[in-house]
Amino acid sequence: MTILVAYVARPEGQAALDKGIEIATRRNEPLVVVNAGPGGKDDTGVVDGYEGERLAERLAKLPVPAEFKHFVRGKSTVDEIEALVNHLDVSVLVIGLRRRTAVGKLLLGSTAQEILMTVSCPVLCVKAA
């Protein structure tokens, strides 16, 4: 079994990472942290080289096997996460949530909602402090 964390370089992504590390360590399960998106110049939340290196260094210090994957290859975030859930034996997917107004949700949609409706494993949603 594997703990999968969907990571974005924002406070809600950090909250998801912290919770994923806590669960993986407590259960003694491998941890996979993924940052995924279609890419492009307007893409926000994509981890730059420094952030990716810092994450990899943090994961290397954990008492469980852990790895960081960064995908920017034209697929949607949901498609990339769903593919990992189907490929790995995921016991839980951890995602971060941010506060949005009802109108914001209506106009922009919700990646978190799509993930909840799509993936076949349990999903733990966490909020930033």
Rank of each mutant, 00 (worst) to 15 (best):
N35D: 13
L107N: 05
S110N: 13
V90R: 10
Y50N: 04
P11N: 04
G45T: 01
L107P: 11
A128N: 08
T77E: 11
P65Q: 15
E80D: 14
D79H: 09
A102P: 07
A112K: 04
K75P: 02
G104M: 10
F71A: 08
C121D: 10
S120H: 03
T77P: 07
L55R: 11
R73D: 08
K127C: 09
V47P: 08
I21Q: 15
V119G: 04
V126N: 05
R27K: 14
E82P: 04
A6N: 03
D89F: 00
Q113V: 01
L59K: 10
A6F: 03
P30Y: 12
Q14F: 02
D43K: 01
D79C: 05
L116P: 00
E114L: 15
P65A: 09
E114Y: 11
A83K: 06
V33M: 13
V33G: 08
R10I: 11
R26V: 10
F71D: 04
V64W: 00
P65E: 12
P11I: 00
A128M: 04
R26S: 11
F71C: 00
T101Y: 11
E51T: 13
A15C: 11
G96P: 04
L88V: 08
I115L: 14
E80F: 02
R10A: 12
N35C: 08
L31K: 05
D48R: 06
I115W: 14
R98C: 06
Y7P: 03
V85R: 09
D18Q: 15
E57A: 15
G37F: 09
E29C: 07
D18N: 14
A102T: 12
E12V: 02
G45M: 03
P30D: 14
A56G: 10
Y7F: 15
V64G: 00
L84S: 07
P38I: 09
E57G: 13
L59M: 13
D79F: 12
E80S: 09
R58F: 05
G104E: 13
P30V: 12
V126L: 05
V119W: 01
V8P: 01
E82D: 15
T77D: 05
D89R: 02
R99F: 09
L108V: 01
V64I: 01
P65D: 13
L88D: 02
R54M: 11
I23F: 05
V85E: 02
P65Y: 09
G49H: 01
A6W: 01
E114I: 12
L124K: 11
C125V: 14
V78D: 07
K41W: 07
T25M: 04
T118N: 10
F71Y: 14
A24L: 02
D43M: 06
V34Q: 07
H87Q: 12
V123Q: 07
V126E: 01
A16S: 10
L55W: 13
G104W: 04
V8I: 06
A56V: 06
A15N: 07
L55G: 08
